[in-house]
Amino acid sequence: MQFFSILMAAVAPGVALLAYFYLKDRYDTEPIHLVMKMFLFGVLIVFPTMVLQRALVHATSDDPFSFAFIISGGLEEFLKWFLLYYIIYRHTSFDEPYDGIVYAVAVSLGFATLENVIYAFFNYSSFSLLLLRAFLPVSGHAIFGVLMGYHLGQAKFHKEVETKHLLMSYFVPMFWHGMFDFILIQFPSNWAWLMVPFMIYLWVRSIKKVNRANSTSPLRLITREDEVKI
């Protein structure tokens, strides 16, 4: 019974956040099987990420900046970006800017959910700690997914600035992911004083991206025309 309780506590934050961002799609929700497929891919890339990170840790110096921005943020966000670019970017279901956010959040939360499950079973000490992880790493990955997906959507539907936004779709979440880890590493005793305003800022920024992506959907014009006819 305790096994099931811990598992549910570890999985619930990722599933809840994915549902939240999935339902924020105003005009044309994505095929649920494709969203879950990307979530599963996010789960699967945890294993090669762990292997590569271990190798990089042994190959580099013990430097907080390198670990935060290259080994953690750089590598994790690159693998997510790689999946999205080669599986979703040219997919026919990716037909409005907000779709990039849905799929990027799905990959990110798949990654975060397995990471949370591993932590829960190998480092579990209290339920309150799992709640803290829901606020920090899990929601952090969701935010990084929003930022990545927003720029992927801009790249796909604004060809004149495609290269710029493709680059931003990797480097923007990589930077904020690196900052997230750097704060935790560099300020082990008083990280909360920096992390709380940091997370609030990122959540506000992310919600603005969500609203902006929805507001630029080409499907909103079709929806309005249908409403007028009715």
Results as ranks from 00 to 15, higher is better:
Leu221Met: 12
Leu34Tyr: 04
Thr60Ile: 09
Leu131Gly: 15
Leu23Arg: 10
Gly145Leu: 08
Phe175Gly: 02
Pro31Phe: 13
Met199Val: 03
Tyr124Lys: 11
Glu77His: 02
Pro137Gly: 09
His177Ala: 02
Val11Trp: 08
Lys229Asp: 11
Glu96Met: 09
Phe182Glu: 04
Glu96Gln: 13
Pro13Glu: 12
Thr223Arg: 07
Met50Phe: 13
Ser169Met: 12
Ala104Asp: 10
Gly178Met: 00
Ala12Glu: 03
Met195Val: 01
Arg212Ile: 09
Ser72Asp: 00
Gln2Met: 12
Phe135Gly: 03
Asp95Lys: 08
Val102Cys: 07
Asn211Ser: 13
Pro137Val: 02
Leu52Thr: 01
Asp28Met: 02
Trp81Val: 04
Ile6Met: 06
Val117Lys: 09
Lys164Gln: 14
Gly74Ala: 03
Ile87Met: 12
Gln154Glu: 14
Lys208Cys: 12
Ala112Pro: 07
Leu130Cys: 07
Ser169Glu: 11
Glu30Gln: 15
Pro188Met: 12
Lys156Glu: 08
Leu129Met: 13
Tyr150Phe: 15
Ile101Thr: 04
Phe82Pro: 05
Thr60Asn: 15
Asp25Gln: 06
Gly145Lys: 06
Ile183Asp: 05
Thr113Val: 02
Met195Pro: 02
Gly145Ile: 10
Met168Gly: 01
Thr49Cys: 09
Trp191Ser: 14
Asn211Ile: 07
Asp181Cys: 10
Leu83Thr: 09
Thr49Gly: 00
Tyr150Trp: 13
